[in-house]
Simulated scan of single mutants.
Amino acid sequence: MITVPAQPFPHSFDPAHVALLCIDFQRDFVEPGGFGESLGNDVSRLRTAVGPTRAVLAAFRERGWPVIHTREGHRPDLTDLFPAKRDRGNPSLRIGEEGPMGRLLVRGSKGHDIVPELAPLPGEVVVDKPGKGSFYATDLETVLRARSITSLVVTGVTTEVCVQSTVREANDRGFEALILSDCTGSYFPEFHESALAMFAAQGAIVGWVATSTDLLGAIDSSPVPAKDM
């Protein structure tokens, strides 16, 4: 077992049953010209999560621990896009319309891609989802159970929307979640802090919260498995 200093108390996980979940690190949310910016947000605020997540991603890859990426987006014909989602707010562009990186939040467009710094490697699972939660209308639960995963280390954007939706879904399905505060981010700093507080409230009612430094320090003592010759 590996024990990580965390809030509200240390969190332990079995490295044989853990996976890293990288939620929606897509150009559409993190880079200028995408869906996030069309809503009037300062997308640079999400960039702070990329570097720490890259370090955690490297540690998982070095040890051969599973990594799962998610992407929010819709079919090119938009048959999986509810009007209730499409028509919210007053963005400069709506989902499916043409932007600087192609059609916003549409699978196959440049904006739908994960940022290069965190791009999936061959063999890493990529889950395409039409909603905010990573379990809704996807096979994520099947993938996790097929690999006997019981614990998730969670990174991604945004903290109070797709990350929070996913962690609550995971909790209801019996998975334990360690959310990394510096590997998650929001366009609204106060929402980020509030979401983290809600995760750990009432004795980790939704999950545990730690930093990437906490996690990496804890797993540094875990031996790297020998590679097959």
Rank of each mutant, 00 (worst) to 15 (best):
P223Q: 07
D87N: 12
R63S: 10
Q202S: 14
R47F: 10
G185I: 04
P32V: 01
K110I: 15
D182M: 09
R54M: 09
P10C: 00
G99I: 00
L215S: 05
L118K: 02
E37Q: 05
K132A: 15
R54F: 11
V153H: 02
I2Q: 12
F35D: 07
A170C: 10
P116G: 10
I2W: 03
E193I: 13
H74L: 09
I23M: 09
H74S: 06
V143M: 04
N41E: 13
D28R: 05
R173T: 05
G36Q: 12
A49E: 12
G131D: 14
A84T: 14
V125L: 13
T211P: 03
R27W: 08
S222G: 15
M198S: 11
H17E: 11
P189L: 11
P122G: 08
G51M: 07
L196I: 06
A146C: 06
G34F: 02
H17P: 09
V154K: 00
V30W: 01
F35C: 08
L104K: 08
R75W: 04
D87V: 03
I219S: 07
I179C: 10
D128Y: 14
M229Y: 15
E193D: 14
V67L: 08
A210P: 00
W65I: 11
C22P: 15
A137V: 12
K85M: 14
P32Y: 02
P225T: 10
V206Y: 12
E117C: 01
A119L: 15
S38M: 01
P223V: 11
V126A: 11
N41T: 08
G73R: 00
Q26M: 07
A55I: 09
G89E: 03
P100L: 00
I114D: 06
H74D: 08
V157I: 03
I95T: 00
V161S: 06
G34S: 02
R54N: 02
C162Y: 06
E97P: 03
I114F: 10
D128F: 10
T211M: 05
M101R: 14
Y187N: 04
C183Y: 02
V125Q: 12
E37H: 05
P100G: 02
V157K: 13
I23E: 13
G108F: 08
N41H: 14
L180H: 08
E117D: 06
A177S: 14
L216E: 02
D28A: 07
P83M: 00
L140M: 09
G123P: 06
D139Q: 10
L46D: 00
R45P: 11
E176I: 14
D28E: 07
